[in-house]
Structure formats: C-alpha cells, structure tokens
Design a protein around this nucleic acid. Structure first.
Lengths: 173, 173
DNA sequence: GGTGGAATTTCGGTGTCCGATGTAACCTCG
DNA sequence: CGAGGTTACATCGGACACCGAAATTCCACC
C-alpha cells in the first residue's frame, strides 16, 4: 500500500502567492479541499464499518437533526436551511416516510405546503445514530494532542464562514 | 420509550461537565461534521455555478492531481492513495479515458496490472480546473479576517490527522 | 502443468444531488 | 368572479460518488 506512497503530510506553509503554475507544492485551498474530501469519505466509511447495523444516510440524518429542533417544518424551509434544492428534500422526505422516520401533513394555512413532523421512531433513530457517530468522531478528536484539538476547535467558525461565502456566490444572492 | 437497546459499548461520554443540553448544544464533532458537509456541498456547487464550462467531476480531478505528480501509476496504487476501492478507480479511469484525459497501458513487469498515464489534454484540463477552483476558494479564504485565516491554516494538519485516524479504523488495517 | 493468489474489469446497488415538468393551491387585479 | 402569474411540492430522469461480488487474466511456486 505504499508504492505510490505517501499520504500528504502537510508540507509546511507555502509562500502566499505562487506563480500560477505549480504541480508540487500545495496551496492552502488545495489542502483544505483535500482535507474536506478525506474527512467526508472517512466519516461515511467509518460509520459503516463500525456500526453496520441501522445505518441512516447522512442526508437523512441532517434532516432529522433539523426536525429535532424545529419540529413541524415545511419542505421549503428544510431545503433553505440545508441549502438543498426543494426537489432533493422532497425525495429524501419521501424515503424517510417509507422508513417511518417522519410523517407528512398539509399545512392548514397554505394547502400547497406540506409540513413534516418527526415520529417517535425518527427521534429514536436519530439519537442512536448520533450516539454512534459522535462516539467515533470524538475518539478521533481525542486522539489528537492538545494543540491540535484546540486548532480544530478554533477553526470551526472560520470554516463555517468559508462555507457561507461560497454559498453566497453560488446560490442565493 | 427511548431504550433503543443498541450500541453495546457505552461511550466514554465527553470528558466532562457539559450539561449536554438536549436539543441545541452542538458538540465539536457535530460541528465538524456539519462544516465538512457544508464545505463539500458549497465547493461542488460554487464551481458549477461560477465556471459552468468544462466542469470535471471532483473524483476525476483528484486522480488527475495524483497522476500529475506520479506519472505512470497503477490502478491499485491510485486506489490505495485515495483510499478508494479498486473498482471505483477502475471505473473513474474508464470515464477519463473516454474523455481523453488519460491513457491506459499494460505494465510490462506485471501484465495483470494496467498503468495509467496523463495525456496532454489531461494536464491542460487539470491546470484549467485548478486555476478556476483555487481562484474561488482563495477568494473565500481571503474574505476572512486574519485570525480566521490563521486558524484555518493552523487546523489543516490536525484535520488530516483526524481523517487518518478514521481511515485507520475503517479498513486500513 | 496445476493451483492459489494478486490486479483489473464488469455489474449491480446505494446514496447524494440537481433541473425540468406537472399540478394543485394561492394571490392579484380587472 | 375569473384569467394569469406565482408558489410549493412531487415526480422523473440523469450525473456523480462509492462499494462489494463475480469473472478474467496473469503471476508465482511447487
């Protein structure tokens, strides 16, 4: 497993403004992209292999999380909050209804709109999943030394701001 | 009514004294998960909307990046390096061949193995994509204030270590 | 010269998303 | 009141991102 070889152990920081044409040093943006990809893959995979029973699709979990806090919600609101297309959420909710995680009703105030509510089963599944998932990720975070852990925690708000910036240009305004 | 009765291992429970507000307190692990999801989605979306011409699938880009540095590579090596199943890489390479980005040959030393090489077109597409992508993400990073930018940079190595930790448990050994 | 095992490919399956299209319900305004 | 435009959703088809289980071909070693 190491013919090609090495995992990108972070090269020290590169000078800020490289001449466009580099295939060897990694910029921050490339490293960030790589980190995001890796984390996403690892997250998905580790959940599956560690807790193979009841594995909810991530996208559904996220909707459950939102629903756990804003109990009856409309499709459009869910979509907006998650920055997904309405059709995507609609489909997801369809699956979740089949799985018994949520129920769909009609908004009496606007009969075009459907309101989604969490079922008991949905709430249970969510807490079970959350427990398993955070178990895993907490373990990973705890495997870091203190400075690393602090660094991650400190970067979280900034990462959200980066996401926001990208979302702005890409979807809404 | 919440005895789901699964998750045999009782979690070590976060090291401390967080009151763990039921619905509303966000742990680091949840925040990190959320950030990763958002960033991934935003990355994909912003590329598509900002540079709708020539949009390469991310998975292909990553392979191109590897190939740009390790010129002829075998499928298995690519898979190992990206932590993907061999069949996944095989399929990706198939698409990339159709697109003219890479070429496939046979390893003379082991004729079962196929070696993949970057074509000129592949290299060009990669640099074009990279330019567009890093443009976008660099802009996002530069929209941050200095402390935020520093925080992100500082967290990168730690994030890679988190990914590594998760990968380990999930199929590495 | 046959057998076990490694490298790929193919195939089918799940999940994650989006846009286009259709439909009902809403809202105006004449 | 009714035509028209708009909104909220559901459905459909399609692109992408993955994986695991066969089938294939070749290597290595007795």
């Amino acid at each position: 497993m190491d013919a090609v070889g090495k995992v990108p152990t972070m090269p020290p920081q590169s000078p800020s403004h490289l001449p466009a044409h580099r295939t060897g040093s990694a910029t921050d943006s490339r490293l960030l992209t790589e980190a995001v990809t890796r984390l996403r893959r690892a997250l998905r995979a580790s959940i599956r292999t560690d807790y193979p029973w009841e594995t909810l699709p991530m996208a559904q979990v996220e909707l459950l999380q939102v629903l756990a806090e804003h109990s009856p919600a409309r499709i459009g609101d869910l979509a907006a909050r998650q920055r997904l297309a309405a059709s995507t959420v609609s489909g997801l909710i369809g699956q979740m209804i089949s799985a018994g995680l949520v129920a769909r009703g009609v908004d009496p105030a606007d009969r075009r709109a459907s309101v989604v509510t969490l079922t008991e089963a949905g709430r249970e599944q969510l807490t079970a999943w959350t427990r398993a998932h955070e178990n895993r990720l907490d373990a990973a975070l705890e495997s870091l030394d203190e400075p690393d852990r602090t660094a991650v925690r400190a970067a979280l708000p900034a990462l959200f701001r980066v996401a926001e910036f990208l979302e702005e240009g890409a979807g809404g305004e």
